[in-house]
Design a protein around this nucleic acid. Structure first.
Length: 553
RNA sequence: UGGGGUGUAGCCAAGCGGUAAGGCAACGGGUUUUGAUCCCGUCAUGCGGAGGUUCGAUCCCUCCCACCCCAGCCA
């Protein structure tokens, strides 16, 4: 390996060895979301990992919905998840798969387990079985139903399936070891009764398999070779293997665990994200402040940048919290290279060029990208009245303020250098207008008198400006680790996470901005057109890096 | 407390007995009609701690410490 090669992660190493030794003929992975919410940035890591590994080793990756709990699942989520994965740039093998399509096979295997004396129907209530389970310090006690005849369990299992037994009145449990230090091995529940209709199977089932009973068997049915999940399932691995070894399954997948992606100032818990949506704190699962794939997309993040973040963060087994700055770097880096430039004034202040004829209009040209001629040039009308940014003008300022000041010069981006003369104020003393003069012959040239401008500001021609609205975003939470400790994440919301600006003015060229494209508004940041608004509304993806403390000067 | 796992810079993360990669952030400097980009430079005598083995230890051994996960008929 040369020093410039990217080091491989532990999963790549494991798979590589399995392939070389012939243990793995063809790699098969899977991404197994439960359709109980939208996908978020944390899922993106798992998606990149599973699909990425399949690509790298010439294998395949299945999309399989782990839909074993009908109460929380819905078709809306199934659809959204597929859209997001495709948008991220990945293609699953064949049709999307569903755990629910394997319910028949799973049930037969459950019967097999009972016949083998490895599972039984338990009629303890939920509360009773909690008591029987014991805790970390005390071993559990065997259920009084543990040694009932297999025939009896089989009969009860049928009744459970046929809806003859009430919810909670019975469950199918594996017969393993009630004294195990691993709580998952204390006769885990395999099937529970739920008289609820399922988004895929409707009312045909009255019982549903638990995650533990379903997952490994689904992997086996699909021929998954490497079943990659997050760290919290480490304790389930012995059970995963016990089940696979106890039933006549077609293949033996292996489970491997990695550390999930955590981002500071961000929540990656579907339960909590759903609470934000349900409470109306955000606009929906795709609110641009949400760390969901849909939210990031609406915010203007690209699939490539998200993949880049996952790549930068790496894959390990140690818990970690990635700095949000890394995600911001990923999107800025991509947009800087690819986003066409334009000008937009967020908080307008009228600028009147007193020495510029009222009836005159020139056409200025500016590059779409300062380093990429291939992107071409755009034209901007220029006339006597322009809009500039309120914060770009001060009546007086120190030398660090590199913008417009009375008596000083500044360059209008892609146009003239101007010199300010006066501020017009209303009765309350607010500045309503600035008067300035252009310095002749300074478009594309330095002034002939040698007095150069100290800075550059953006502008928009007033008569041809297009009115628009802009949404500025900040992190949703004020706390680095929302909801940690005894805190309630709902009380750590950032009140300024959304600033809605109306009456902004953009270059005319932006009127037909395409949804899904990223633009740089020079000196402001990157923006994208909102996908849900009829009017011209831009969402701020991310601001420009600001090394000089722009607002302190 | 029983079981499982993890500790390398502010944040990620390589390293697999031969003398601490890389990225993000930060900080200097240069270029610049975006306070952007770009370019150059700085940033762990140190690898959770203490012992031990060895010519040599982030890596091997022992003990200790810290943090994370598990007591759903959630996944």
């Amino acid at each position: 390996m040369s020093s410039t090669d990217k080091p491989t992660n532990f999963l790549q190493n494991i798979i590589s060895e399995d392939v070389q030794s012939g243990k793995t003929k063809q790699l098969v992975t899977r991404f197994p979301p439960e359709p109980n919410g939208y996908l978020h940035i944390g899922h993106a890591k798992s998606i990149c990992l599973n699909f990425g590994l399949a690509q790298e080793f010439g294998g395949t990756c299945n999309l399989r919905f782990d839909d074993t709990n009908p109460e929380k699942e819905s078709q809306e989520y199934v659809d959204a998840i597929q859209k997001d994965i495709a948008w991220l740039g990945f293609e699953w093998n064949g049709e999307a798969k569903f755990a629910s399509n394997y319910f028949g096979q799973l049930f037969e295997w459950a019967q097999h387990l009972v016949r083998e004396g490895k599972a039984y129907v338990c009629e303890l209530s939920a509360e009773e079985s909690r008591e029987y389970r014991g805790d970390f310090t005390r071993p559990g006690k065997n259920s009084p139903y543990r040694d009932r005849p297999a025939e009896e369990s089989l009969d009860l299992l049928d009744k459970m399936k046929d809806g003859e037994l009430a919810e909670g009145s019975a469950s199918l449990r594996a017969k393993i070891d009630m004294s195990s230090g691993n709580m998952n091995l204390r006769d885990p529940v395999l099937y529970r009764i739920r008289h609820v209709s399922h988004h895929n199977t409707g009312d045909t089932w009255k019982i549903y398999p638990t995650y533990d009973f379903a997952h490994g068997q689904e992997d086996s049915i699909e021929g998954v070779t490497h079943s990659i999940c997050t760290l919290e399932f480490q304790d389930h691995k012995p059970l995963y293997e016990w089940l696979l070894e106890s039933m006549p399954v077609p293949s033996q997948p292996r489970q491997y665990e990695f550390a999930r992606l955590n981002l500071n100032y961000t929540i990656t818990s579907k339960r909590k994200l759903k609470a934000l949506v349900d409470s109306g704190v955000v606009d929906g699962w795709d609110d641009p402040r949400m760390p969901t794939i849909a939210g990031l997309r609406r915010r203007g993040y690209t699939a490539k940048a998200i993949r880049r973040l996952c790549d930068m963060a790496g894959v390990t087994r140690s818990d970690s919290v990635v700095d949000l700055g890394m995600l911001e770097f990923a999107i800025r880096d991509e947009l800087d290279k690819n986003a066409p430039r334009s000008m937009c004034v967020l908080r307008p202040l009228k600028l009147v060029l007193t020495n510029y004829p009222e009836d005159k209009t020139e056409v200025m040209t500016g590059p779409y990208h300062p380093q990429r001629d291939d992107m071409g040039f755009r034209e901007m009308p220029f006339s006597r009245e322009l809009w500039i940014e309120q914060e770009d003008f001060r009546e007086e300022a120190n030398k660090k303020f590199k913008r417009l000041v009375i008596g000083k010069r500044v360059r209008l981006r892609n146009a003239y250098i101007i010199e300010a003369d006066a501020a017009v104020k209303d009765a309350a003393g607010n500045i309503t207008e600035v008067h300035a003069r252009i310095i002749e012959n300074t478009v594309g040239n330095d002034p002939e008198d040698g007095i150069r401008a100290k800075g550059v500001i953006h502008w928009v021609d007033a008569p041809s400006a297009v009115s628009c609205a802009i949404n500025l975003f900040d992190r949703l939470f004020t706390h680095e680790s929302p909801g940690s400790g005894d805190e309630d994440f709902m009380e750590q919301l950032n009140p300024d996470s959304l600033v809605e600006l109306k009456g902004c003015y953009s270059e005319a060229s932006l009127a037909k901005a395409e949804i899904g494209k990223g633009f740089q508004f020079e000196r402001q940041g990157y923006f994208t057109r909102d996908s849900r608004s009829e009017d011209l509304v831009f969402n701020q993806t991310i601001g420009l890096r600001d090394s000089q403390g722009k607002f302190n000067s």
